[in-house]
């Protein structure tokens, strides 16, 4: 080998199409930005504090755990920041500091790191944190209570709470246009319907999320809500409010599509999305919770490995019908 060039040797393939985990996460954050900014515009400085603290503490938890577990520092790939950002977007603007820190702890540490980090998590970290906090401190997710001091210039009654307490007659004051333009009560980044839809479409077109999950989720919500409404329109509201208020849109485009906890095959994706959509409306209409998105997605996360076992037959696979 004297005087020979030292060549790099590795296994095929020798090309890569250039995608990366970091690009995926930062693009998802970019897609979520319009809705987050609208939240900051509407809810003001406190919302900025909550969102920043969420992103900051989520990254801090991951960094701390990286150090404790003597693992390579992984906050650069943006997954903790994305988790923090999405979590901030589904919290009320008046969330106290301790609640934010507990929420990011549950999401990042209990939701992701203890399973071995990104990719090992069986639940969407944001959904898990919301479920744990929502069950532990339900008052802090009561938007009518949390946002009572806000004067935004539009009706600040939480649509889903009104619907639950007083029936469809109480929500006739809300219009679709208001929902789309963010003129509703809700999580910091969960109210601006148009922004969430635009972000979701961006992610779908770029191939960062799987359209099958988002679309089947929305279809599940639409069809189930319509069926309820058709059966008894005096007791159940129509699909519009179910689609555009609460966590439905952010759930469809940002939470249900969490890579690790959702299926990858075509039919399982449809089952998973539709299942979460149907459960959402069932919980809202006949369950005890005001918003069903969190628990619906959590349940489908649990079912994911089972659903994703429905898969096409591999090339050349021989099935012995003994």
């Amino acid at each position: 080998m004297n005087g020979e060039k030292k060549l790099v040797v590795s296994h095929a393939p020798f090309w890569h199409d250039g995608r990366s985990i970091a690009a995926r996460n930062y693009n998802t954050m970019l897609a979520a930005l319009p809705a987050a900014l609208m939240g900051l515009w509407i809810f003001g400085g406190h919302a900025l504090g909550v969102l920043s603290l969420c992103i900051g503490t989520a990254m801090a938890w991951e960094l701390l755990l990286n150090k404790i577990m003597k693992r390579p520092v992984s906050i650069g790939n943006g997954s903790a920041a994305l988790t923090g950002m999405l979590l901030g977007m589904v919290l009320p603007a008046s969330a106290p500091v301790w609640m934010v820190i507990v929420a990011t702890f549950v999401a990042v540490v209990l939701g992701m790191v203890i399973y071995g980090g990104l990719g090992g998590n069986p639940f969407s970290p944001v959904i898990l944190a919301l479920a744990v906090l929502g069950v532990s401190w339900p008052l802090y997710f009561n938007y009518n209570y949390m946002l009572q001091t806000y004067d935004t210039g539009f009706a600040m009654a939480y649509p889903l709470a009104q619907l639950k307490a007083f029936g469809p007659g109480a929500v006739t004051q809300f219009s679709v246009a208001d929902f789309l333009m963010g003129k509703q009560s809700g999580g910091i980044g969960a109210t601006f319907g148009l922004g969430l839809i635009a972000g979701g479409l961006y992610l779908i077109v770029r191939g960062f999320i799987r359209w099958e999950i988002s679309f089947s989720f929305l279809a599940g919500v639409l069809v189930t809500a319509w069926l309820f409404n058709a059966s008894d329109s005096s007791a159940y509201a129509g699909p519009a409010i179910h689609l555009l208020s609460g966590y439905t849109l952010i759930g469809a485009f940002f939470l249900a599509t969490d890579d690790s906890s959702s299926p990858v095959n075509f039919i399982p994706m449809l089952i998973y999305g539709a299942g979460a959509g149907i459960l959402t409306v069932l919980i809202r209409n006949i369950g005890m919770y005001v918003d069903g998105v969190v628990l619906a997605i959590l349940l489908m996360n649990v079912a994911n490995p089972l659903i994703d076992a429905i898969r096409p037959k591999a090339l050349g696979k021989v099935v012995n019908n003994a």
């Binding site: 060549l7 095929a12 393939p13």
Partner: peptide, 20 residues
């Protein structure tokens, strides 16, 4: 040059060689 890669076959299925 040093640290280049020389591959017998194509970019997807070839094999890199350690010597010219």
């Amino acid at each position: 040059n040093n640290s280049d890669r020389v591959i017998l076959g194509g970019p997807m299925r070839g094999k890199a060689v350690y010597s010219l």
